[in-house]
Design a protein around this nucleic acid. Sequence first.
RNA 1: GCCGGGAUGGCGGAAUUGGUAGACGCACGGGACUCAAAAUCCCGCGGUGGUGACACCAUGGGGGUUCGAUUCCCCCUCCCGGCACCA
Length: 828
Amino acid sequence: VRNYTIGDVLSRYHRMKGFQVMQPMGWDAFGLPAENAAMANGVPPAKWTDDNIAYMRKQLKSLGFAIDWSRELATCKPEYYRWNQWLFLRMLEKDLVYKKTGVVNWDPIDQTVLANEQVIDGRGWRTGALVEKREIPMYYMRITAYADELLSALDSLAGWPERVKVMQANWIGRSEGVEVSFPYEDGSGVLKVFTTRADTLMGATYCAVAAEHPLATRAAANNPQLAAFIEQCKRGAVIEAEIATQPKAGMATGQFVVHPLSGEKLPVWVANYVLMGYGEGAVMAVPAHDERDFEFATQYRLPIKRVVQSTRGAYEDTVAPWQDAYAEPGVTIDSGAFSGLAFEAAVDAIAAALEAKGLGKKRVQYRLRDWGISRQRYWGTPIPLIYCERCGDVPVPDDQLPVVLPDNLVPDGTGNPLAKTPSFYQTACPTCGGTARRETDTMDTFVDSSWYYMRYCCPDDATAMVDDRVGYWMTVDQYIGGIEHAILHLLYSRFWTKVMRDFGLVQIDEPFTNLLTQGMVLNEIFYRKSDSGRITYFNPADVELILDERGQRIGAKLKLDGKPVESDGIGTMSKSKNNGIDPQALIDEHGADTARLFTMFAAPPEQTLEWSDAGVEGAFRFLKRLWHFCAEFQRAGGAQTANDPSALARQVAASPDQTALRHEIHAILKQANYDLLKFQFNTVVSAAMKILNALEKAYRGAGGVSAVLAFSQESLPLVREALAIQLRLLAPITPHLSFHVWRELGLGNDVFDAPWPEPDENALKLDEIELVLQVNGKLRGSIKVPSDAVRAQIEQMALASPIAQKYIEGQSVKKVVVVPGRLVNVVL
RNA sequence: GCCGGGAUGGCGGAAUUGGUAGACGCACGGGACUCAAAAUCCCGCGGUGGUGACACCAUGGGGGUUCGAUUCCCCCUCCCGGCACCA
């Protein structure tokens, strides 16, 4: 509701601003959740997915979103995913897709590959079995070939939040450093490492390699203890966060390398903090200047040699080498010929020395890895390959696309159903016609979401992935998505767009011109734990809070049985924690406009939002008051008032009250228009509330109780103008009410065809303005000055004011700060 | 652990990016209307002191820059998002 209300508000606002707006909708429908639901309910994921699409489509319609349903698509339909297969084959031809082994989580009981999400504390979520790692062949997309462009093009994305660009830049992780070769002791080769801190090379006291490194494998061949340790490492975590937080562990390989400059003999260790996937899978360890090396060296009593000194202060005077690592750049010390050099000079000198010996060179390293897209799962796009014993790996020919996914299978949690369905995997080799087997892996669902926005432009094209219409509409002017997509989805989409561009399919370089990263909606999590330790989660809608007489919360109970439930704090809304909210109840009780208004009012779009329906009544009350006010205005004959700007100006000029009211309304409108530019919809709603408050205050009749409103004939043109502003300001947020009342009040046929309201500069002008008066920066009062007063005049009036005089008495004025239109500060 | 973001009344949040901290709304308290309740309307509502005009304190904690800091800088705490197979 939050995500699509933001989109609808922006769409309707831009439509009123005169733009031609396309607001499409589709279903990213492949993936794990559908398989899990299918498993739980014993129905094929296709049926579950279709039912959900129908339910959600109905709900989106009831919320009144201005969606062009003729463009609707679902990524799980062959008309869509055939083009995933088609582009995959084009990429395979250009070597942008390749095959290599990759590591997966393996559940030994269910005999199945697990997603990271399905691994809980190192065990399979269904079986509880200790998860193993397995290496299997997979297909990769060569996103690293685009690393440079994906990084540099971030600068062109002016409409993206800075934080997203920073996260992407760090993810790509371009670093300039030095590749250093440490010759093996026996001269049989070299151990290559990459470092960004070549200045610390003279402080290297050992080298460390990943468990999967060839050197480790070789060393383990006649060292059973080491082999066992490596096995243990390989069984460990796959998730980077776990690898980075697990306790450091290592073992000496018994192998030694030679320091390329000093000739010193350094031991080589296997360490669980070295990643095979980054750099060379090996590091030179400088415990004195790297936190992780320091921790490891301390733990295994390896030497620590300090070779860099702080330039700022005497860090090394107060902290001994065995106490802490100094990881900042500084000046080299105790480094022989390389001593006394600043960071860059030291790196240059050491790189040059290495290069002269043929044992190193400067190079660029990326953190970004190629995109593994193979999934050993059913509910996804089939990878279009065929394996023939005679011909090998044979791509599916274009005229045999799409490879259609059977839609009647029910996964049971053990392996991939496709691999157990001969009618799917048995096929003929396209080359030799012999018996062959289809690939049963499917594609990562990020493939589906990497280009769906382009397909909205031409959803009916049965002969091509995209056509000319894509050129007309693309790029996406305003993309809206959760901040959780900041890296993966948004990076893959950018990569995919560039690939399509290089194939000549589109002319754009980037998919999304402006990006709004909406904050997540959180809600409280309630549960009970049974004696056996099994946890049951309860939906917050079924829980009642227990309050004391002061309204302070003292507990919570289940409405059904009145017995207490525990709170697990606030978390992202999720099915597993049963803390989501079905918006239907809100829509049923208060209507779509209230649901939309409240959602927009609760917080600015980019901010995380803790769900609470405590304010819904306030939003509903406001709309009822507005409706009532409009009805009273209509009853007073307001709908018959002609739209006559000069008559309005005359009548307003004749009344100071009307002048003040009109000024107030136009000032609120000016601020609201500014807030809209920043997409700050919560204060736009607040502005609409202020307008109604001002109108009610001005026209509330005597006796108050039954909210009788009194409009004089003279006031009708002004109220008409105010309501015309109000209804247009609210139209993007509460389209139903605005559309109806706009018509009822005779303001026009369709409020969405009306121009966006702009404040009248004449109404904004004031003869006299109030300035804040400060003395020594403290608020002491205010003074009224003519709005066209110059600095000297303001200064003089401020000093002459009784308030200032009171404080000045007996002291001298040092200076007077005047901030035009805001304040005067007298410094004593 | 690393990268990014956040913290303001009882609650959601505002403060035109260095210029009146708490707009707007919720909750709460008092009052009006009513036989009564609901709905509606009016008033109050950060803390401490004072009868009072007023004074002082206060934007997660500690320091700094400035005439002036929620806003800028340094250090710290806690929370949220991401970490490549949830999407």
